[in-house]
Design a binder for these strands. Structure first.
Lengths: 358, 358
DNA sequence: CAGCCGAACGTTAGCGCTAACGTTCTGTCG
DNA sequence: CGACAGAACGTTAGCGCTAACGTTCGGCTG
């Protein structure tokens, strides 16, 4: 492994026959250098393979053109978000470094933010959980933008509209004629999971449908929990005709349980997921689900952070991006036969629901 | 957002009533400080919330206790590897920062390594593709360990034994009596994919089974490619009784195609995957596959890097970790009926195969 | 043509830290 | 008891860079 010497600015300046500061000005595209000399210096710097030392830059208080990201890599979509953010950052001539948060660890991230502060110009925190993390960042002396932390955050933030997405999913089922609609929840530590649950309850209430606690089963976003939740639902005397699962993975778990019970999706039970994971359009049945605006979230968060870095004191902006219902094969209108059977039970409810369904 | 002042070492020293260097020695646990004073200084530093400035440390040539990782986040398993590596690093009192490589981009990573060099003490490169990247790192003046780059790499490296895993998968099928075994390849830009293909060919040859090019279909690790590859295989006059797919995702794609054709897995066709993705043990059928030693790879790579950082000039070590065949439901012995049909065709081959199967 | 202004440079002082030396002081031994 | 070793500190210089001042000099004005 041959060791190479990395030239310093001083060496570039010496070769170019100018002072340190002239070289610095030329390279940082600042005024005070004649065009010819600037070109000269840039050419020489390039030939010498000069790379500015960001540690030294940071030490003087200058920008490093690096943004830091704190994320839990195991959380679904985090990679997609990161890829999108990286592309946006690079387009703005910024680099991005990611700190991978240990799974389910609540240890003070104090030192993490402080570390990133010494390296980056700003930090994006992808933190699906409520956490004490954020409080300790309040004094961090560096621009911070959060993703998925929900409205209550004290920071400028970017979120997907989970509530609206959940409402759309549920209205879709109601429009299809379903009245007994179950919910398989996600991990309620996540604000996104709570918003989806809230949407379920609210839309039921708006449609004047009864809220049967037996139809609201706890899950944790995993396939297995969806499977088991669906088994519980199928065991009910009066089983649901539709299920809204808090995410696609648990939706597919539920579908597996339904099929194992000898029933079909959507023939017997309609299923809606949430997230639009890539295989949702490939697996059979193709899943009706709510798509998260990941690319827009990535773009919005980076742009917001760059604005903060540039000193635009965005007044603690909260950006909520719309989600989108994608209707595929896993939902279908309630069968008339069954509809009749149920007609009596939900008579009162129907009026409200029809109303809501326009 | 209240701004806080971060104390410098000088301020800590002043409060403690000692010189800068004494404080530095105390905090870095170096000799030359009396025990009482050391304790004093550490306590005061803690009270003041002192955090060493890594940019400044790096500038003086000292360790920052940060390792850098360059990875393509979208590649399967990268997150698992990163999580494992992060845990190992933290256990050694190191922090880890990840640079997310843009997808399929071959632009000079020159500046990436140079950037990390200014921040980290060493770099791990998770680079499934052959690439010019590595060459430019050769002069990087910083310890580098690669993962998945294959034996030919000039760097200390850690890899999974894809070849051995592929051999195990194929021997398993041969032991089950299969003679017409197809291969659905991965993206051959990846060394792992090439190794698995090589294993397929070599074991066939060792077993003196004929190598039918029609049974070797190109894929790209994606579900869709597995689906389409299987369709091609099913359309053959003399279709295979077993398929070895280069990864689990394409294996499930193949299974979907087989079922769509009205056949069953493993009843009509046995399928082996590679990777042991989490749902391989949950989806029906549970997939027979080859497990990658991700945790060991994470541990080995970090430990190797830390050794290099510590100055142990490990002589360009190449660590190859064993993979493990996990037999589940998607493979079954060849049916006797069919076996008889085929017996004539592969008569010569059988002897060799039986031999190999012990 | 003195005076002044501004562009184009150069010089100096630090950012926060550590390596490499000084300095002081105590104990110890011939 | 002088010399000397070594522990426990302090001082200095510098890592690579930039902000904030100097300095020079051509050109313009009254």
């Amino acid at each position: 492994m041959m060791k190479r010497h990395y030239p310093t600015l001083a060496e570039v300046a010496k070769v170019a026959g100018v002072s340190l500061m002239t070289a610095s000005r030329a390279i940082n595209n600042r005024p005070g250098v004649s065009p010819e000399k600037r070109e000269d210096i840039l050419r020489i710097a390039d030939e010498m393979g000069y790379v500015a030392n960001r540690a030294a830059q940071k030490l003087t208080g200058a920008r490093t053109r690096i943004i830091g990201v704190v994320a839990e890599l195991h959380t679904p979509f985090t990679s997609d978000l990161l890829l999108g953010m990286g592309a946006v950052a690079r387009a703005a001539d910024y680099e991005m470094l990611v700190y991978s948060l240990p799974v389910c660890d609540r240890r003070p991230p104090h030192s993490i933010i402080e570390m990133l502060r010494q390296i980056a110009d700003g930090v994006i925190v992808i933190l699906p959980y409520e956490s004490d993390y954020l409080e300790s960042m309040a004094t961090a002396h560096i621009p911070v933008v959060t993703i998925e932390q929900g409205i209550e955050s004290a920071f400028p933030s970017v979120t997907a509209d989970n509530y609206q997405g959940g409402c759309a999913a549920l209205r879709h089922l109601i429009e299809l004629g379903h009245r007994r609609i179950a919910f398989i929840s996600g991990n309620d530590r996540l604000t996104s999971a709570r918003d989806r649950r809230r949407a379920y309850r609210d839309v039921l209430a708006q449609a004047r449908l009864p809220h049967d606690p037996a139809l609201e089963v706890d899950g944790d976003f995993l396939r297995k929990s969806g499977f088991e939740a669906a088994q519980k639902l199928l065991a009910l005397d009066d089983r649901p005709t539709a299920i809204f699962a808090a995410n696609d993975t648990s939706a597919y778990g539920a579908i597996a349980a339904i099929r194992e019970a000898g029933l079909s999706v959507p023939g017997d039970i309609s299923v809606v997921g949430f997230d639009d994971i890539p295989i949702a359009s490939q697996l059979h049945p193709q899943l009706t689900t709510v798509r998260q605006p990941l690319q827009q979230m990535a773009r919005a968060s980076v742009n917001l952070l760059l604005a903060l870095i540039a000193g635009l004191d965005a007044p603690s902006e909260q950006i909520v991006l719309p989600t989108q219902l994608i209707v595929r094969e896993s939902t279908t209108p309630l069968k008339v036969k069954r509809k009749k059977e149920e007609a009596v039970k939900v008579e009162r409810a129907s009026a409200g629901a029809a109303n809501l369904a326009r």
